[in-house]
Nucleic acid binder design. Structure first.
Lengths: 155, 155
DNA sequence: CTGCCTGCAAACTCTTTGCACGAAT
DNA sequence: ATTCGTGCAAAGAGTTTGCAGGCAG
């Protein structure tokens, strides 16, 4: 799903809900889709401010749920205190995360069986599955041995 | 793994690390193993205080990592702000959680394939897997229809 | 008497919210 | 006008930490 398609999707979602398309919301959207890796609310604020200086922290936090609800952003909680986000694509609904404990990067991996598994097990409990997430913590052997992670390039 | 075995494991771990076996630490341990469901730091504090009134919040928060590191407790983060804990057993290292969004209960389910999957995918990235977790959010159809969850009995 | 442990309270991090002003319809 | 959106600053939740005193070895 391209950024353009997502932007239209986001706008449509706002309109449908009677919300307004403001410059701040568009700046936050643009900042989010310019990121190449998972990002936090705080880093999103920084980048959004570079696009539109009037963007405030409060608006970022208020806009993030709007974007996840309209399915243009996906929220990833790795249990580290702060939440991460990344642009949603058609391809990454059934994904798991591999989190490198050394370089803290988050890798998205395809996990096609996940949905089936979640459904199977939920139904056994009489529950209706909504979503599932698989997260793998892993360490970088190269980093441990050489003090340098080949995947590492900041975050 | 029985509570007695775990208690010895916990004590041995403390001793091995040159830490002391104090009444507060034992009270926190006892409170944790008396719980029947997942518990939070705050509820653990309450129960530990009932056993030993001198237990403070700080000590609970300082003891929880000691217990998870010595493998007598397992930490479960469902991305809800606060962390949950439960006694570790031999059987629940390869488990997933099904979280009911209606009654907020957490069900532990066996997921034997998980370890294999985590390994496979980590190794593909050149990483060494440490742990994996699968979490399924689900809703209770009964609750939605009858306003009452058959699984519900407080938390 | 040295070093681990403790409770207390303050600090901290991330996120949410009340408020009054401003902008869009 | 009315409703929605905003920034600011304060509040909030959960957790961590500095400190001075206490207790074990």
């Amino acid at each position: 799903m391209s950024a353009d398609v997502s932007r239209e999707k986001f706008k449509a979602s706002l309109t449908r809900r009677g919300l307004r398309i403001t410059s701040q919301r568009l700046a936050i959207f643009a900042a989010a889709f310019a990121r190449k890796e998972h990002f936090t609310a705080e880093s999103l604020l920084k980048h959004a401010k570079a696009i539109d200086a009037s963007v405030s922290r409060a608006t970022v936090y208020r806009t993030l749920p709007l974007m996840t609800e309209s399915q243009v952003l996906r929220e990833v909680d790795i249990g580290s205190g702060e939440k991460f986000y990344l642009p949603a694509t058609d391809m990454n609904t059934q994904v798991a995360q591999v989190i490198c404990v050394d370089c803290h990067r988050i890798f998205e991996i395809s996990a096609p069986f996940m949905e089936w598994y979640g459904s199977t097990v939920s139904l056994k409990l009489g529950l209706k599955p909504i979503s599932q997430r698989l997260q793998v913590s892993a360490q970088c052997s190269a980093f441990r041995q050489q003090g340098r992670c080949p995947n590492h390039e900041g975050k």
